[in-house]
């Protein structure tokens, strides 16, 4: 079995455990073992944008030191926020020699001087480039024929462009994955727009309205469900439907899944690997049974 270093991040271990469990099971089915980085720490969740703030790059870079300590030079991560933070910090580190020196000096207790030579790979990229959608299609046991799935990229898989996993204005990577599983991708105008992210903490109302509009649009284009790679998008689009319904009584609920859950369905994995128990809106029984 092929092995690859894996950075989980905090949320995959807590509210997005369904993301992690389905990810590990799906990768195993594809013959890949995700090896968790020892002693990883939170990446900080957001890339620090000010020119003088180096302190907040220590957390992401420290994780890359752990990757090197494993003897690896490539790490896979699933969460869009972790991916974006690790990727952007690494790029900044690579591009600025003086900062590189300072960051390493801060971490003088580490046994290794980091040189910027770890590649950060988002799981979707890994599936496209290292596994191939053709191979995934061959492994499908239950083709999801007739299922209409709207890919929701959100912000951080695509922006800023130097950290994008695909064309930032016209991506197709999730569509290609959906097709390889036998389902039909649904294009809709909100697919690369923001769900308003962490405003879910202090402005539930703004996020609820956003969720209402995103789901309404996906519904209008015929989607049965929305697919995401970000535990924060998932929470906002899924659990915030509760507030959306309070605010907009005509809201029609729609399930929101991690791409690994949809893959697990198609690859014929067990309920315990798919883990709909942690999704707020449960996918309709009929929808699931007709496909499994």
């Amino acid at each position: 079995m092929q092995k690859i270093a894996y950075y989980p991040g905090c949320t995959m271990k807590t509210t997005a455990k369904n993301f992690e469990d389905s990810a590990i099971a799906v990768f195993k089915k594809l013959g890949i073992e995700l090896v968790e980085i020892p002693r990883w720490n939170c990446c900080g969740t957001v890339y620090s944008l000010t020119s003088d703030d180096l302190m907040h790059h220590l957390a992401p870079i420290r994780n890359l030191i752990r990757v090197k300590e494993m003897g690896c030079d490539k790490v896979v991560t699933f969460c869009s926020m972790c991916y974006n933070t690790l990727k952007q910090s690494n790029l900044r580190f690579q591009q600025n020699e003086e900062e590189r020196q300072k960051i390493n000096d801060f971490m003088y207790r580490e046994e290794l001087n980091y040189e910027g030579d770890v590649e950060i790979v988002q799981a979707l990229e890994f599936l496209r480039d290292s596994v191939g959608f053709k191979k995934i299609a061959e492994k499908v046991k239950n083709p999801l024929n007739g299922l209409k799935v709207a890919p929701y990229y959100g912000c951080l898989l695509l922006r800023p462009k130097e950290a994008s996993i695909d064309n930032p204005e016209d991506p197709s990577i999730v569509e290609d994955l959906i097709k390889s599983l036998g389902a039909e991708p649904v294009d809709f105008p909100y697919k690369n727009e923001c769900c308003m992210s962490y405003l879910t903490v202090n402005h539930k109302d703004i996020v609820a309205e956003r969720t209402f509009n995103i789901i309404k649009s996906a519904g209008k284009f015929g989607a049965d469900m929305i697919l995401t790679s970000c535990p924060l998008c998932e929470y906002n689009l899924d659990a915030r439907q509760r507030e959306a319904l309070e605010k907009f009584p005509d809201h029609l609920s729609m399930p929101v899944l991690y791409f690994t859950q949809l893959m697990a369905m198609a690859l014929g994995l067990d309920d315990k690997d798919i883990r709909f128990d942690l999704n707020y809106i449960k996918p309709d029984d009929k929808l699931i049974k007709s496909n499994i």
Binding site: G9, S197, Y198
Partner: peptide
Amino acid sequence: LPTIAMVSCLR
């Protein structure tokens, strides 16, 4: 709330 929501909001 997901951990990433709280951490990012407070950051």
